[in-house]
Design a protein around this nucleic acid. Structure first.
Length: 427
RNA sequence: GGAGGAGUGGCAGAGCGGUUGAAUGCACCGGUCUUGAAAACCGGCAUGGGUUUACGCCCAUCGGGGGUUCGAAUCCCUCCUCCUCCGCCA
């Protein structure tokens, strides 16, 4: 959530930001509402504090009176304290109430978009930040989409996944499983080479963690929930990895903190079926390597560039055609200030598939996380960033389609030492 | 899963109903001394909120939540976590 101080001192800027996200006049009111709720909060807080101060002072006096044997005086004060306590109880209730409302108001206000974020409503309005410079591959007649290739080469099986679990849970096998593992290792190795510390986090998280990264209360329906133990299956490694430093004050000498983690990701994706989500295009379980950074506020946009270069480097090495989009206000995630999406071209489907999303959240996440650093005497919020590097299922889809030849599916050179074979052939 | 024990500042560790946001030690940051360093000595050293031009003052926080009391780190309830023993187990 946004910092209250920022909200108070930059009210107009926040509103301008909401307009970029297509909020109407009604939506903008949340900003003023939050500020006025905070005014009430301060007012109640001050009155309560004064009462508590009085109570504390009286209690001390009572203690002293009892010691010196002045019973009666003590009794008098005691009844006064009881009055004070009654009043305080009311104010405490009021404070609790106003805090809940304030939190709700704050949760309803998204991050302020970076000035470079273009206006727009849908993904159609996203800006092509860097287009693919070369020719897009055109496959000859008779080429197959990846779900057909899966059958031809026996590399993954959606029907089996359905049998075992349900739709959207692919089962990889043989050379397909091997290729999947190769991609994970390759991505992790590249991240480690780039200075990221490798993390294997828990795949289930508690409510606090889900709340801290903004999955709750916002995207409740997106996550699988284990009711018996009150745990959520992670929709991305971002959740456990970003929570590592929840509630911490970091020594600035440790900055930047660079972390990477591979995890399966679980997403309910309720109600999404149809042609666009065929095959591996959208599934409930997929593998992803995530990179996460905590940065000094002055350096976070530099870091974002670096992350873009890193992801671009991965796609270059995999020899996949891709483009980079700058998300427009309407498509930008609730918590992000600026997001770039990477899309690879899937030649058989003749469409672009999103394989990475790289974002700067500025202090929006760290405010909820209470993730700070010491800036001299001052304690300040850090900037958090993250990006997929990379999401597996769709990469695999594009790879299979683009690299199909009459002699099998060609494995990119960088992966061959990981897979142990240079092409996938019919088994 | 069963039985017992414990959770206090960055760490270790006192306190077990009153002026204790918390002794002491270590770590850390200043200073004195020293050619320099170490040692010694002196000082500082939690987070959040309110208020103030400022110095400061006030409130909350001793695993989380609730309760008893004029007053709770200290007593009670509850949840969580950790340790020991038993059971189960990749």
């Amino acid at each position: 959530m946004l910092e209250l101080n920022f909200l108070r001192t930059n009210t107009e800027r926040v509103k301008e930001g909401l307009k970029v996200r297509n909020y109407d006049e009604e939506g903008l009111k949340a900003v003023d509402r939050a500020v006025s709720l905070d005014d009430s909060r301060k007012d109640v807080q001050t009155r309560l504090d004064n009462l508590l101060a009085e109570r504390n002072a009286l209690s001390k006096e009572i203690g002293a009176l009892f010691k010196s044997g002045k019973r009666e005086e003590a009794e008098q004060k005691r009844s006064r304290v009881n009055e004070v306590k009654e009043e305080a109880a009311k104010l405490e209730e009021a404070l609790r109430e106003v805090k809940i409302q304030l939190a709700e108001a704050l949760y309803s206000i998204p991050n302020v978009p970076h000035p470079s974020v273009p206006a727009g409503n849908t993904d159609e309005d996203n800006e092509v930040y860097r287009d693919w410079a070369g020719e897009l591959p055109v496959l000859p007649e008779g080429t197959q989409p990846h779900w057909e290739l899966a059958k031809t080469y026996n590399i993954f099986d959606l029907e089996l996944g359905t049998k075992i679990t349900g739709s959207g849970f692919p089962l990889y096998r043989g050379q397909g499983a091997r290729l999947q593992r190769a991609l994970i290792s390759f991505f992790l190795d590249e991240a480690v080479k780039a200075g990221y510390e490798e993390i294997i986090p828990p795949l289930l998280v508690n409510e606090d963690s889900a709340r801290a990264t903004g999955q709750l209360p916002d995207k409740e329906g997106q996550m699988y929930f284990v009711e018996k133990d009150n745990l959520y299956l992670i929709p991305t490694a971002e959740v456990p990895v970003t929570n590592i430093y929840r509630d911490e004050i970091i020594d600035p000498a440790q900055l930047p903190v660079k972390l990477t983690g591979y995890t399966p990701c679980f997403r309910r994706e309720a109600g999404s079926y149809g042609a666009h989500v065929r095959g591996l295009n959208r599934v409930h379980q997929f593998d992803k390597v995530e990179i996460v950074r905590y940065e000094h506020p002055d350096k976070s946009y530099e870091a974002l560039e670096e992350m873009l270069a890193h992801v671009a480097g991965l796609l270059d090495k995999l020899e996949l055609p891709y483009r980079i989009l700058r998300l427009c206000g309407g498509d930008l995630g609730f918590t992000a200030a600026l997001t770039f999406d990477f899309e690879v071209y899937s030649a058989a489907q003749q469409r672009w598939l999103e394989v990475s999303s790289v974002s700067n959240f500025e202090t929006y996440q760290s405010n909820r996380l209470k993730l700070r650093f010491k800036d001299g005497k001052e304690t300040r919020l850090l900037h958090t960033l993250n990006g997929s590097a990379l999401a597996l299922a769709r990469i695999l889809a594009a790879l299979l389609e683009n690299n199909q030849t009459p002699e099998g599916i060609v494995i990119p050179k960088v992966l061959q030492s990981y897979t142990g074979f240079d092409r996938i052939t019919a088994q």
